[in-house]
Write a protein that binds this DNA or RNA. Structure first.
Lengths: 342, 342
DNA sequence: CACGGCCGTGAGAGCGTTCTCACGCCCCCG
DNA sequence: CGGGGGCGTGAGAACGCTCTCACGGCCGTG
């Protein structure tokens, strides 16, 4: 066996124990903050750890504890555009903030096609992570099943399509859309269109359903001409808005199912010479940073991110610790944020 | 000890061996595709693996092989805006494509502040990953040193500030910027400004240096008034461009150090009533998707992503396998892509 | 017909942790 | 002054895998 590697062999618990003049068990106790260690022993061990720059080998530890102290956020999207969605960035930020004070690690995994999804599934099943938070679940997504069968703790970020037995956290997309549309109705608008999200995502479906419900309740018809499907991107929103304007020139309000799309819609409206909110009132969804800075500032539905990310980790941890029912889920309330666009 | 967990205990090599009627060693050989197994034994093992849904425990394997078959892409950025940078998305996409055919896994880690950087450093040192690809290195970044000291294989995506002993892969930012600026000069422009990237990132510095060099070579003065610092975001580009227009109303060309910023710059120019390219010619950098779709389509410098991502993994793998010098690095050539904006 | 070599296999020793016991020691209480 | 109960400690067995080594059996060669 030739040692071609230049990497220094890392010190082991044994070496620390020898240097500190104690047993392996005592070193382990110090490392794991057990109270049952005498101050002298503790000090000796800490000195030895510092001197050897000892870092515990996680593989060895995980082998016996069956814990990796790592959870994965899986981003399940064919197009990498999702990276640019501020909602996604917020979730990542919120999650790592929620884990900052713990000794849990967060890793991001992306899966663009079925092959990569299987790779991710394998990664999780092999025991690299204690649990998975899965984002952006399209309708035919195989990953939840793969993970469920393997018994990997799983929480979805977003309600699943079928009401399957799986934990999830989501905003009240439908309720939020109802409020958004009612707000447009409240400003006297009657020709209210919607730019939806992708309709193979539940957030897209639910927000459209809310718009529909609000119109029907108000005695208006949610005519198919009033609906254009977007893809949660700015460009998609712009395109969809242009479509709507072509189809329904006299529309006076629009509920756009995400803020980036709403920014695109604002651009399409400006290009078409419509004033916002005078001619067309616009309400978005997300309360992304851009909603404040765009022109005019966007009236929008705030997602309760501050609630959602801690819930996500909490529900997952409860599963990991084995104290949760299989499908404990939560819906978080949204809130209307009034700005200039409606 | 109460077993509160509902997770089924996963089968072990031993159980597979018993079911297949062979020894643990033989099962291991089948799992690892060793040729030294008789067809009958192989078949029996494969059947047993399928029946038990056996998945090897990576922790146990890693403990002896000292390999995790996982590499980390570390994103080292205080602001989460980077997620929205198409260059970052391209790197992620390229990297996972480069690893798709291998049994290597790619995980993303983010580090927003020093605390999170230390957490990432710990994660890597503890042996969770075989190596690290580090993106977005600001000037005072402690992570490279942490990893170097720990002996974790490391390749930077982007040239480091000081020419320290560390492997990296980068585009020829300076050369690309020279070509971009020369292209502007070639169209007869003489008042050529630049919107730079953040100047605590080497890409920002190098691209500005290229602009400077091209001007000097052409006998023009790279006056400080011609420089506005951006942050690689669209909004930043718009702001910086507005600044430049206020400072140098008669400028006739601008080299913008990234395409998202260039899109912002186009918007600022339009807002100021300048026609592109008639009044002001614009050259971007990156050849992001948006460069094709914006109005007018952007002349830009293409980063050789198709070269860079495989190189990144190759250099890292060589270090992991212990066959690479400590600081084998590469600079990849860029290319001018001519569209309508200049 | 005998012998060396190769091939498939299994036994067993680690890999670096944690965790359960059991064992002295000291202290407190009766 | 004796006995019980912590409390700090160490020995040693796992955890699930890989890998070296040795061992039969078969073949081919002399």
């Amino acid at each position: 066996m030739t040692d071609t590697s230049t990497r220094p062999a890392s010190p082991t618990l044994d070496e620390v124990a020898v240097l500190a003049g104690v047993s392996r068990a005592t070193v382990s106790r110090v490392i794991n903050d057990s109270p049952r260690v005498s101050p002298e022993a503790r000090e000796a061990v800490q000195a030895a750890v510092a001197e050897l720059r000892y870092v515990p080998n996680r593989m060895a530890r995980s082998l016996v504890t069956r814990r990796t102290d790592t959870i994965a956020l899986v981003l399940n999207e064919p197009n990498t555009q999702v990276f640019s969605d501020p909602f996604f960035a917020s979730i990542v930020r919120g999650l790592s903030a929620a884990l900052a004070d713990t000794d849990l690690n967060l890793v991001l995994l992306t899966a663009r096609d079925e092959r990569e999804q299987e790779k991710v599934g394998r990664y999780a099943r092999q025991g690299h992570v204690d649990g998975v938070i899965l984002m952006s679940v399209h309708s035919e997504d195989p990953l939840p099943d793969i993970l469920a069968v393997a018994g990997v703790p799983l929480v979805l970020c977003g309600r699943p399509f079928d009401d399957r037995e799986v934990a999830y956290v989501d905003a009240d997309n439908r309720g939020g859309a109802v409020v958004a549309t009612q707000h447009l109705l409240g400003t006297g608008r009657r020709r209210i269109a919607t730019v939806t999200g992708p309709l193979d995502m539940i957030a897209g479906v639910d927000r459209q359903a809310g718009w529909r419900q609000a119109l029907i309740t108000a005695g208006l018809e949610p005519h198919p001409d009033l609906v254009a499907e977007g893809d949660f991107t700015e460009a998609g929103g712009q395109r969809a808005m242009a479509e709507l304007l072509a189809r329904v020139p006299d529309l006076d309000g629009v509920f756009v199912a995400s803020d980036p799309m709403a920014v695109g819609a604002l651009r399409a409206l400006r290009a078409a010479g419509r004033r916002v909110p005078e001619d067309v009132a616009v309400v978005g969804f997300d309360d992304a940073a851009v909603a404040e800075t765009c022109d005019p500032p966007l009236t929008t539905i705030a997602q309760p991110l501050a609630d959602m990310t801690p819930l996500l980790t909490e529900l997952l941890m409860r599963q990991i610790d084995g104290v949760a029912g299989p499908a404990e889920s939560r819906i978080c309330q949204t809130q209307l944020v009034r700005r200039a666009s409606a």
